[in-house]
């Protein structure tokens, strides 16, 4: 895991010791190949749509809950339901419990950052015609969906200052690191389990969930 900076330091160590690990990068200075060209500021601005939790990337503009309600019923409700309950298998956007047998992660019950809502709606929704809403419209959608989830009140106006300040209910439950390996199976080779204790707990046999795997594609309808 070297980068050009570490590599630069690393190289002198390598040459001093005449041994060392394989070098990951080639260590060429910036601009060595000289291919391509610098993008213009306008080109960069046009494609820079990513938004961070601290608000970096949020454009100017604003939108209210009331404005959001209108756009939502026009452009989103057909799939996501009037109150965000989700039609058919389309994602539910509001409500949902994380406890119980069938947890339902939604924007309200699960999402850690409100800024992600702006980023995602702007880049990917409405699903059939993505990235065509104005910044004001996207802000209005953010306000409306947060309001559907009772995270902001009816007077909330979403803009580049207000959205990063919204604290999402489940945020502190997220651990942004990988605790694995979290299993420690041993490589037993003989008499690893008591043969008498082996019991089939579940089987796919007889469940009518598996599409066929020969002949033409299965058209099996959603349940």
């Amino acid at each position: 895991m070297s980068n050009s900076r570490k590599l630069f330091l690393g190289l002198s160590v390598v040459s001093a010791l005449c041994v060392g690990p394989a070098i990951a990068g080639d260590g060429h200075p910036a601009g060595y190949f000289g291919y391509g060209r610098a993008p213009t500021d306008a080109e960069i601005a046009g494609w820079s749509i990513a938004v961070r939790p601290d608000g970096q990337g949020l454009p100017p503009g604003k939108g209210s809950v009331a404005e959001g309600a209108e756009i939502y019923s026009d452009q989103c409700a057909a799939c996501h339901g009037t109150f965000g309950e989700g039609e058919g298998r389309y994602p539910k956007l509001a409500g949902g419990q994380l406890t119980g047998d069938r947890p339902e992660p939604t924007v309200g019950s699960y999402w850690p950052f409100a800024t992600t809502l702006f980023d995602y709606i702007n880049r990917a929704m409405p699903f059939p015609a993505p990235h065509q809403l104005t910044a004001d419209q996207v802000y209005a959608m953010v306000a409306y969906i947060l309001n559907l989830n009772n995270i902001v009140d009816n007077n909330f106006v979403a803009d580049r200052d207000s959205v990063p300040k919204v604290k999402m209910p489940h945020r502190d439950a997220f651990l942004w690191r990988d605790p694995r390996p979290d299993t420690a199976a041993k490589e037993c080779m003989t008499n690893c389990v008591d043969p008498g204790s082996i019991r089939i707990e579940s089987t796919a046999e007889g469940k009518s969930l598996t599409p066929r795997t020969t002949g033409p594609l299965d058209e099996m309808k959603p349940e």
């Binding site: 990513a50 938004v51 961070r52 939790p53 601290d54 990337g57 992660p105 924007v107 699960y110 999402w111 850690p112 950052f113 800024t115 992600t116 980023d119 995602y120 990917a124 997220f174 942004w176």
Partner: peptide, 11 residues
């Protein structure tokens, strides 16, 4: 200098 926490790494 920070992650973006996009929808595909949160939701």
């Amino acid at each position: 200098d920070q992650p973006w926490f996009t929808r595909e790494e949160t939701s």
